[in-house]
Design a protein around this nucleic acid. Sequence first.
DNA 1: CCCGTATTCCGCCAAG
DNA 2: GACTTGGCGGAATACG
Length: 284
Amino acid sequence: MKTDITGPKYWIGERFSIQHIRRFGKSSMPRPHSHPTYELYYLLSGERIYFVDGHVYTARQGQLVIIPPNELHSTASSEKAEFERILVNFLPEYICEGGASTGLPPIPGTCRIIDFSLKEQADAERLLSRMLEECKAGAAYYETSVRLLLSELLILLERCRLFNPEPPRSLHPTHAKVSEIAAFLRLHYSEPLTLEQMSRQFYISTSHLCRIFYRLTGFHFREYLQEVRVREAQKRLAGTRDKVQAIAEQTGFEHISHFNKTFKKVTGLTPLQYRKQNRSRPSP
DNA sequence: CCCGTATTCCGCCAAG
DNA sequence: GACTTGGCGGAATACG
């Protein structure tokens, strides 16, 4: 009987973690989330649907997904429920200590999926399993060793990206449509938007859109829009001196009372509390 | 795809 | 005056 394996999550301080997981059954869909770390997600086998940066991707065996810090993302199972993966998380500082130049390649900003050749897959798998081994054994200088292995992996990524900058993206038509809609929402958050309007505009039935959007992104339609709007509001609260009222209007909330409610639900803070804690412009 | 129902959203007002 | 909280009810949306 095949069983799920959830390997231990190895940590190096708060800055790096690695974990090996294998799933056979359908696992419940994790909520979409974000964190300040980079996430590298390598699929040893199987297939996963990814929602990152407003795009739906199908990640296949031998591919690596890159999730930049603080990017909302979620994963869902495709028709094949089985998959095996290695998950690496690290803070940007872990690689570029104190912002000093390390000679390491920049982590690609636009490319979310790396399509390794067979050779590169073998290399990547070797590096990842050595990271796991080092963490498990914990021998002297293992932290340095892991850092070097990660550096090698990043170089591999960058070389692969340089060689093949446009990975073939054969999008399932449904995925493409949901991606388009998500992109539209990210662009038009300031306007009043409804599910019905979107379904008309993109030629799908309302109920179908309602369901596939959730299945592929992990967000309910409304929930995603809220997330996009609140994130935009956060930027403006931190980066401008605009009044809360104005920001509410700019981000698609017609009424402040509703803006406050939603903002607090998502953020845990009232708009002004948030501004106080995250102000990025010097106060006059 | 359609339907009925449960749940959530959102504009509105009142009040601290 | 600006912000925050809370309740209400029709509309939108989620779900079986």
